[in-house]
């Protein structure tokens, strides 16, 4: 039996938490229920559950509005960036964490400094260069540009972790005659998996959710990822609210599922820049 004062405090606590949870989740609930409704129903009855669940909006969005293509492009973009950053980032991090060469610390600062550069301050020359070299509307180029801006963070996370791993395993592998490459792929990468996973979550979500680069560098619908495709869909079929809502749900569902499944990793990945090592 709780004392009345404590009971009161608990009730206030939960009311407050529930209120903020409601605010946090409501827009997602709204998008989800609306995605099953007809346009009239969305406007006349915005809060209620749909009177019947029909997937017309999804079918229309996926097929007519190219959302299927956009979805595939987003997977390609996000997986491509994550893989590229995992490889290139782990390689550079290994050197920066372990190897001895002149100005090694300066080189580390040089790479990590990129976290301070605002993306927006680079887009005019980027657009110019990509136009000059005829590299617009190219998925590979989009992957490279998007990756470049997550590289500093990846190196920051992975180098810090690698420094904390003792070098004894590497040493014995070298004694056994392993080459640099073998030590890297068989010892260093497996041991660094926790940090690589954290960085990968950050990189995957960053690429999946990025709008600015596709907006500037992609022009055809066959190459658009979801973020830009969603905006294009909204621009063209403004009256098709149900379809837009379905496209929104398709866009936000993969990151949400990833978050629910890999909660700790996702929180770590997104707050990694905030927590000093």
């Amino acid at each position: 039996m709780l004392a009345p004062a404590r009971l009161f405090r608990q009730t206030v606590l939960y009311l407050f938490l529930a209120l903020y949870a409601l605010i946090s989740l409501f827009p997602m609930y709204f998008a989800l229920v609306s995605s099953f409704k007809t346009t009239t129903e969305i406007f006349s009855n915005s809060f209620a559950l749909p009177t019947q669940y029909n997937f017309d909006n999804y079918v229309r969005a996926w097929e007519l509005a190219n959302v299927g293509t956009y979805f595939f492009n987003s997977v390609l973009l996000a997986v491509g960036c994550t893989a590229l950053l995992g490889i290139v980032g782990a390689m550079a991090s290994y050197i920066l964490a372990r190897f001895r060469f002149p100005f090694s610390n300066t080189v580390f600062v040089f790479f990590v400094m990129g976290m301070m550069i605002p993306v927006h301050s680079t887009i005019i020359p980027l657009a110019f260069n990509i136009g000059t070299f005829g590299l617009r509307d190219n998925m590979l180029v989009l992957i490279l540009v998007t990756s470049a801006f997550s590289l500093s963070m990846t190196i920051f996370i992975v180098t810090g972790f690698m420094k904390s791993v003792p070098g004894s395993l590497e040493e014995s592998a070298v004694m056994d005659g392993c080459t640099h490459w073998q030590v890297f792929t068989r010892i260093v990468v497996p041991l660094s998996m926790p940090a690589l996973a954290t960085a990968s979550v950050f990189n995957f979500l960053g690429a999946w959710n990025n709008l600015l680069f596709p907006l500037l560098f992609i022009s055809s619908k066959t190459n658009m990822p979801l973020s830009y495709g969603l905006l294009a869909f909204f621009g063209e079929r403004r009256a098709d609210y149900g379809g837009v809502m379905a496209a929104i749900v398709i866009t936000i569902l993969p990151p949400l599922i990833a978050y629910v499944l890999l909660q700790e990793k996702v929180e770590k990945g997104l707050t990694a820049g905030a927590v000093k090592g």
Partner: peptide, 21 residues
């Protein structure tokens, strides 16, 4: 989890959801 969840969403989708709200 509920409080953190808006952070994983595409900001494009978020802006559109609020536009409709």
């Amino acid at each position: 989890t509920a409080f953190f969840s808006p952070l994983v969403l595409s900001i494009t989708a978020v802006s559109l959801m609020w536009y409709f709200i």
